[in-house]
């Protein structure tokens, strides 16, 4: 009973932190993009625009709850919820510090991958239920992209799992006490990073919401807080991917002098910055380029990396 209560409190705190972090992630991104484009960005609401996410949230909540004609209402409502819940769910297994995690599951990394796979349903169902051709096309593209790049992502993860000898994220971090996996697995790191950008539908792989072609993709018909839920899902996914890169390749909480949580936060922030930096730099790729790159470069490379890693691991035993 006590354990249950403790878990509930921990989840509550984590949920609050995550949603706040994700709200401020939007502000950070807008301010950073502005800096990259040598403008000011949102700086009116509160000092440095710090209350902007709050204002956005209030605005979105108070918007009319509108559903277009002939949508599949249940699915239409379910899709953003799936998107958001699966994105948040992953944090149950991510270790922020030596003792700071909600659950140390033996197959932690599998839970992460499974949750992000279920997250694809949010995209597909959202596009399908909207009764709009742009939504449908956007969701088709999006799911094609997510499924292809999840493969590359998984291969990179498997290489790490082989190196660490465990599926538990805590164990993976512990295995990096001496040397971080970015040194041992540079190929896996790079392909993970690319696949992570594609997984989160971010520029330069933001084809599902290519506004020149598809208006807003699968979320065209969404407004108000349902739209916000899709966006929370997307931004939480960015934070997730940053946390995962940190955990899998950059030694998680390991680092000299500072406490583990601080190191984890710093590394995570560096990757969040990296996400915004890429968005500010690289133009969007074409859909056929995206698919060709995923299937013809990343997947074979990841496969090769897994095989080589496996051979080396066996030889070292």
């Amino acid at each position: 009973m006590n354990a249950l209560a403790a878990a509930a409190v921990k989840s509550g705190v984590l949920l609050f932190l995550l949603l706040t972090a994700c709200a401020y992630m939007t502000l950070l991104e807008r301010r950073l993009l502005a800096k990259f484009q040598i403008r000011y960005g949102p700086n009116r609401v509160g000092p440095f625009g710090l209350l902007q996410p709050l204002a956005d949230g209030i605005k979105l909540i108070f918007k009319e709850d509108f559903a277009p004609a002939r949508v599949d209402l249940v699915v239409y409502w379910l899709a953003p919820a799936i998107s958001m819940v699966t994105a948040l769910f992953v944090y149950a297994v991510i270790p922020f510090g030596p003792q700071l995690y909600l659950a140390n599951v033996d197959v932690g990394i599998l839970i992460v991958l499974a949750a992000s796979s279920v997250g694809v349903y949010g995209v597909i169902l959202g596009g399908w239920s909207s009764n709009n051709k742009y939504s449908l096309l956007g969701s088709l593209r999006s799911s094609a992209q997510l499924i292809s790049y999840e493969l590359a992502l998984s291969f990179a993860v498997i290489s790490v799992v082989l190196t660490a000898g465990s599926l538990s994220l805590v164990e993976i971090v512990n295995a990096q006490a001496r040397v971080w996996f970015v040194v041992l697995q540079p190929v896996a790191f790079v392909s993970f990073l690319i696949a992570a950008v594609a997984e989160t539908n971010r520029a330069p792989f933001d084809l599902p919401e290519a506004e020149q072609e598809l208006i807003a993709g699968y979320q065209t018909e969404y407004g108000g807080f349902k739209f916000a839920m899709f966006y929370i899902g997307e931004y939480v996914a960015i934070v997730t991917m940053s946390a995962l890169v940190t955990t899998l390749f950059w030694g998680g909480w390991h680092g000299p002098f500072l406490p583990g949580v601080v190191w984890f936060a710093l590394k995570m922030f560096a990757f969040i910055f990296f996400f915004v930096w890429i968005r500010a730099t690289l133009p969007r790729v074409r859909h056929d380029q995206l698919m060709a790159f995923g299937w013809k470069v990343l997947v074979p490379l990841g496969l090769l990396n897994v095989v080589i890693t496996a051979i080396i691991v066996v030889l070292l035993q």
Binding site: K35, I38, R39, Y40, T281, L282
Partner: peptide
């Protein structure tokens, strides 16, 4: 070329804004 582009945008990060309040 991609890395070069990243370097360019990174340099722009430290420029004062050209827009006005």
């Amino acid at each position: 070329a991609m890395l070069k582009g990243m370097a360019v945008t990174f340099r722009y990060l430290f420029r004062p804004p050209i827009t006005v309040m």
